[in-house]
């Protein structure tokens, strides 16, 4: 672990978020301070209503926090977004059904004005990485849920973002597909060295994937614990049957407050 990068990528201090105001006011998050290192795999775990998605959306510049500060490598979240530092993956694949797989992956590059040849080259490289080399000409409607989500990941990575933001990306998939995607995601992460912020409500998933698990508790949403996971990498499915794994899952579970 001594080779790990120690440069801070995402720095949040005392983040608070309130929705509405007056009598309908809802406090989604109170004083969250967190620091995410470059190249780190961090999970935000918690039950619904704990504000984990809100926190991800604040990082993505989709929401502005009502209090506190956040910066991405020293600059504002807005600047980071404009610089193309974020790759987003949602719970549903959000593919464009009228574009074939290659065109879906090319979409962000089209918007950034990348020339046609380079677009195709980079899209095909990504397709190969997510294991869909032969499906470039298929349309999303012809793919299974797991394959669609792989396309979503490829689309997020094609702009070579520094940070991959994933909002419960595997929660709609069956267990078998999900486990394969876990391994594949870890492989991709190792090859690309991205910082990943991964939102989930699945404790076991977060233990298997992450370097660091941020446990959020609801009412009001707050950061109740940060659990480090230092299993050796690369991780294989086998570690799930070790007692260390089970006790780590238990440690995360017992960090929730007020559930």
């Amino acid at each position: 672990m001594d080779t790990a990068n120690t440069e801070t990528e995402i720095l949040m201090s005392d983040i608070g978020m309130k929705f509405n105001s007056g009598p309908d006011e809802v406090t989604a998050l109170t004083s969250v301070s967190l620091d995410i290192k470059k190249g780190e795999f961090v999970s935000l775990v918690g039950p619904s209503g704990c504000g984990k998605t809100t926190l991800l959306r604040i990082i993505a510049d989709l929401l502005n926090p009502t209090s506190g500060t956040i910066n991405i490598g020293g600059e504002s979240t807005k600047q980071a977004r404009l610089d193309g530092k974020y790759g987003m993956v949602f719970q549903s694949p959000v593919l464009y059904e009228w574009r074939n797989v290659v065109k879906n992956i090319e979409l962000p590059l089209e918007i950034m004005g990348v020339p046609k040849n380079e677009r195709l080259e980079r899209a095909e490289e990504m397709l190969e990485m997510v294991g869909l080399k032969d499906f470039g000409n298929s349309y999303p409607g012809q793919l299974s849920g797991g394959m669609q989500q792989r396309v979503g990941i490829a689309r997020a990575l094609v702009i070579q973002p520094e940070i991959l933001l994933m909002d419960e990306p595997f929660s709609a998939l069956d267990e078998f597909t999900r486990e394969r995607l876990h391994e594949d995601l870890l492989n991709i992460w190792r090859r690309t060295n991205k910082t990943i912020v991964f939102v989930t409500h699945n404790i076991s998933e977060s233990v298997f994937l992450s370097d660091k698990i941020c446990v959020l508790s609801p009412h009001p949403g707050r950061l109740s614990a940060v659990v480090d996971v230092d299993f050796e990498r690369p991780r294989l499915m086998d570690i799930k049957s070790t007692p260390e794994y089970t006790s780590k899952v238990f440690e995360v579970r017992s960090s929730f407050e007020g559930v």
């Binding site: 510049d61 977004r81 974020y86 464009y96 089209e110």
Partner: peptide, 21 residues
């Protein structure tokens, strides 16, 4: 879907691109 708007927003797409793409 809201997510498609968010996707375009995260790419810093302009209005013209939002409509045509």
């Amino acid at each position: 879907e809201k997510e498609k708007h968010e996707l375009m927003y995260s790419y810093a797409a302009n209005k013209w691109q939002l409509y045509t793409k």
